[in-house]
């Protein structure tokens, strides 16, 4: 131990400029990541800003109990899982299919054009995307016109709880499908071409080749990304939800993170909102750890 410390002090002396340089980076993480981790103790306190974090009285698990016994708990949990899994079900295969189809295009210029155009929505800001969604689906908007022609329903689509998840998921696919295909296209381009030539000589058709060569070759990529997605199964970000939801659709649109935002920063129930957020962080962390364990088992690769 002592020898170790001696070595360390020697290392710091020798490389003091590197340690000095990195100090702001360490302070950044300490203050904006680790101080909030400590600050999360207000989840167990009856927090009052006048008393501060340390002096506020300890109340144990009261906020957690309140949350679990409230009607919101099941609602936000159900919505979070619903949005996340629906997104996974439709959003996960979409870029794989797109990559396969792009790689089958025989004209290079056409493939490049499709790529350039489908990547584009990824760079458009969320506020603009949600603004467009709102414009198109409100009464008189272009998508609403089509929807009304088919169903006879003329209400603003963002006010219909049944439509929130479809709108959220479809717009997400529209924005990210091209971008998501990049990584699969890279995996596809790494597949050995001799395999295809050999298969063609053996008389295997294109479809057979896809199932016998292409998919198995990119399977590790698919599995890794799938596990990564599973790892964030209960992690639906608040930004897009807040931009799109309104009180009329809370029953399907309100997720854990948007609930934390409302409870904490709009209703100022800081301690309660922190407890809900902490519950979410802990669950997410547990899911990520299990996902990593799965990844090690199946793929022999750790996510970090």
């Amino acid at each position: 131990m002592k020898a170790h410390l001696k070595l360390l002090s020697k290392d710091i002396k020798k490389n003091y400029s590197a340690y000095l340089l990195v100090l702001p980076v360490i302070l950044f993480y300490a203050y904006f990541s680790y101080v909030p981790m400590y600050g999360a103790v207000i989840a167990f306190k009856d927090y009052s800003p006048a008393l501060g974090i340390v002096k506020s009285p300890f109340v144990g698990l009261e906020h957690f109990r309140n949350f679990f016994s409230s009607v919101y708990f099941l609602r936000v949990l159900k919505n979070t899982i619903n949005i996340s899994l629906t997104g996974l079900l439709f959003g996960f295969p979409a870029p794989i299919i797109l990559a396969l189809l792009i790689s089958e295009l025989t004209k290079k210029w056409f493939a490049r054009t499709v790529q350039t155009i489908t990547y584009l929505p990824h760079f458009i800001s969320l506020v603009v995307i949600c603004g467009m969604i709102s414009q198109f689906t409100t009464t008189g908007g272009i998508i609403q016109n089509i929807y009304a022609a088919v169903t006879g329903n003329t209400i603003s689509m963002l006010n219909d709880p049944k439509l929130f998840v479809p709108i959220y998921v479809v717009s997400g696919i529209w924005q990210e499908v091209g971008w998501g295909s990049i990584i699969y296209l890279a995996a596809l381009s790494a597949v050995d071409h001799e395999l295809y030539e050999a298969a063609t000589i053996d008389g295997a058709g294109r479809l057979k080749q896809i199932f016998a060569i292409t998919l198995p070759s990119i399977m590790p990529t698919i599995v890794t990304l799938f596990i990564l997605r599973l790892g964030s199964a209960l992690n639906v970000g608040h930004e897009k939800i807040i931009l799109l939801y309104n009180p009329m659709t809370y029953e399907t649109s309100d997720v854990i993170s948007s609930f934390v935002y409302r409870a904490g920063l709009q209703s100022f129930k800081y301690d309660y909102a922190t407890a809900v957020g902490l519950f979410n962080s802990v669950i997410n962390f547990a899911i990520v750890l299990s996902a990593n364990y799965m990844s090690k088992k199946i793929n022999n690769t750790s996510l970090w």
């Binding site: 680790y34 981790m37 957020g277």
Partner: peptide
């Protein structure tokens, strides 16, 4: 650098766990 590993761990850990929105807001 001897402290590379612990400091890297301290940094990467923040990708997987955080105190949440409200404590960050206070910070």
């Amino acid at each position: 650098l001897m402290l590379r590993k612990p400091i890297s761990f301290m940094i990467i850990f923040t990708m997987f766990f955080g105190g949440g929105l409200i404590p960050f807001y206070f910070a």
